[in-house]
Amino acid sequence: MAALARWFFGPVPLTRVAVFRIAAYLFIPLDLLVLRPLGSHHASATALYKPLIVADLLHLPRPTPELIAVVTWTLIPLALAAAALAPTGRWQRLLGAAIFLLYVEQLIISFSFGKVDHDRIAYVVALAVLPTVAGARLRERGSAESAGWALRCVQIAVVATYFLSAFAKLRFGGVEWVNSATLVRAVMRRGTGFGRLLLDYPWLLHWSQWGIMLMELGSPVVLFLRGRWQRVAVGALAGFHVVVYATISIMFWPHVLCLLLAFLPTERLVSAAAPVGGQDAHGGAAGEAVPVAGYQPVDAVGQPAEGRDAQDGPQG
């Protein structure tokens, strides 16, 4: 139990939460206006609405062009405000909670037209947990257990997206999925010029299916790697998404955002740009990474093992 608690609640620098908030909230206008501007299109075809279970359970209103517009144009300014205020840590809980609820409503509407995207769960989890961390300024030297839990949840959701999809393949496609022509189908339906070149090498697509299945089943390992190995694994997963994008023009944008921001020590971006401890007695100078108190087990990247042990809960 103690090990589980340490794994879930190992303190993480609050700066990492602030960086995550800025990126996650800036993603919303990008998503709604550029990457997936489905809302405005759906407004022209509300007759094709086919509600999700959750929409019925919660008695959510049937979408109208007006409702879609209100949700979209409330979300965008709130997200911009939250991103702008994130460096100060102010209003994050209130704004974050409102954004979470509105974004989920927006997703429920847009997934109620016959197609659900599977790249959103980690991002929805991120929107849910980011408001649970109090404060979290960008130039902050502290760390918090609440931040550790929040980022751990996003990490679990990222991994679940791979791991559970392996079981979905076994359930819907059967064990023969690995020997099927599913990737040929993917490329024939929406292959890029590069992807279509692969149709001449069907064995490559065939064996890629084995690789995907193994990668997905093995994905939980990334939760337990540390330091350089974890970064290599995260880089490999990001590389997988780049290859998918290059071949069939599908990119899991919000998922990859969560993959990078929940696993990588992004606080170093801030300390490298302007040291958080620049004015303190330790004489930290520009360009230096300043050790952060309590920055420990969860992702103690680059910290020697004894250093991490020494940080284990001085306050009990």
């Binding site: 257990e145 609440s146 050790p291 108190a293 680059g302």
Partner: peptide
């Protein structure tokens, strides 16, 4: 796994004392 050389941890400047791992505020507990 973590025994590699610590990346992005430049040498501590000679002018200041070694900032120990606990140099900042203690972690906020739940």
């Amino acid at each position: 796994i973590t025994s590699g050389a610590p990346p992005a941890q430049p040498p501590v400047p000679p002018s200041g004392p070694l900032p120990g791992p606990l140099s900042g505020p203690p972690p906020a507990r739940l």
